[in-house]
Design a protein around this nucleic acid. Structure first.
Lengths: 115, 115
DNA sequence: CGAATGCTCAACCATACACTTAAGTAACAG
DNA sequence: CTGTTACTTAAGTGTATGGTTGAGCATTCG
């Protein structure tokens, strides 16, 4: 369970903005250019471009310059890594919760994993 | 797929800081007081208290005043909600990827779900 | 060629963040 | 009652973020 602390900082920060989540949402349905991504929003293209940069720096998306447009795609494995971090913590919490349940039922707490 | 945008903003923002993730990590192993949470860090108690407030506002933890100490616990279902948001996007992206794979193999793309 | 398109870069601004220190309040302990 | 503990609040500080406008730079089109 290595701590890719910097990457998690960037990824969670990238996800903490509704516009960026919207962009990710859009990209989960297929690649798009920066201006396609900008269309649903009032913000300037430059602002969206900055959001794209934040997403790319976080590793959640990858982009590639194709002619004068930039193709943006979601990076599934990075999303998976973030998901896993959450999943690990939740499972730990839930297993503790289960152990507590057994204890309250008078079961043997030592049957679970470590203290 | 309702957008609890504000809650997601708060949750992802809360998770974007290594100290707060550390606190969550600690709490996934069981409840703790604010000063117990502060022990591993150099920061002032006030700083940790602020982090706890951020985490509580995000719904990722719940706290309860017990005498002069405050007991902090992780809120598994909130973690689960965040996890689900990520999972939904990743699965969408992956299903698209699968469809693309079938297309490249000469399969029938219409067998997948919506366009 | 020259014009339009799509992105990129730079500078600036207002707000939000993560701290800090210092003072304040509410349990307990003696 | 007095002191200690444990949290809480307030105010202040430096830095980062998200947004703007405006200019710059490669394509691509006519």
């Amino acid at each position: 369970m290595v701590e890719h602390s910097k990457q998690l900082d960037l990824a969670f920060h990238a996800l903490s903005d509704a516009t960026r989540r919207g962009i990710l949402d859009r990209l989960s349905r297929g690649p798009a250019s920066v201006s396609e991504l900008a269309k649903p929003y009032q913000s300037s293209l430059a602002a969206i471009h900055q959001h794209v940069q934040v997403l790319e720096a976080s590793g959640l998306i990858v982009t590639e310059k194709r002619g004068r447009t930039r193709e943006c795609r979601i990076a599934g494995e990075a999303v998976q890594r973030v998901e896993n971090w959450l999943s690990e913590r939740r499972q730990l919490w839930e297993s503790r919760f289960d152990r507590l349940g057994r204890l309250l039922e008078g079961g043997d707490i030592t049957k679970g994993d470590n203290a």
